[in-house]
Amino acid sequence: MSSRGSNPAHPSSGALPASRSERESTKGRTLHADPNAARVGDEAGASESHAKMRTHALSAYFGAAQVLRSIDLSIAEKRVTAVIGPSGCGKSTFIRCLNRMHEVGPGARAQGHVLLDEQDIYHASVDVVRVRRRVGMVFQKPNPFPTMSIRDNVLAGLKLNGLRVADPSSVVEQALRQVALWDELKDVLSRQGTSLSGGQQQRLCIARCLALEPEVLLMDEPCSSLDPIATARVEELMHALRKNYTIVIVTHNMQQAARVADFTAFFYMGQLVEHDRTDVIFTRPKERRTEDYITGRFG
């Protein structure tokens, strides 16, 4: 992927090669866009893969309003799990519970258990900061730190954790390579993070997350503010990252879920309706409500 990102004709300009290589990659993508074809090899592995995270009777509230009702869900290790459902069904709240970001908002609280490697992250003895370091999060809108350069944005997670970095340059290079930004940006690392295009910003935010070497990556509608080209790049990236990371993605876009996810969970009105392999959910769902939703019969 990184080799496709390079463009020797424009070594110093970030924007131009980005858009060009993004276009190339979308072309490449449409060739193998059939999600089932891409996942044939995974089906055997999926059954073997153990649960990296599990929720048990997880409920979440905003003040008096209950937004999640006793969710039991397993998240397979080194797989992509998509969470779909109509607006307000609690899917964002759900993944925000997975790294205890839900409780940051005023009046928000969660109940029940979330196990990360069989350890309850809601246990009183658990340090929230450590949980968030292991379970990284990418948000709906790209949010690079505006006061920092591209380089400092990548290192921000380490610095904010007070960690000393032996070789910051190699951390930056490695993280940016993982998100296929290195070749586009290696000459402009001192530019402000917010000077990039939306798609690049989002990939920078993913790199910022990866620099901390999390085990799980939560993505809350990471493509909702991106154009189709940038979306394709992020999806391609997810595909590459699932080798090393457990990924949970919330998406409104069912085609996206079908393209990127090994497993899909359908949420409706705060409840988990169905959770299965993506091809099962999209071709022969067990629940009527799932079928209605994915076929667009929902009001």
Partner: peptide, 11 residues
């Protein structure tokens, strides 16, 4: 969103 970004990074 910036506060969330920082908290989400484990700050």
């Amino acid at each position: 969103s910036l506060r969330e970004a920082a908290l989400g990074l484990g700050a």
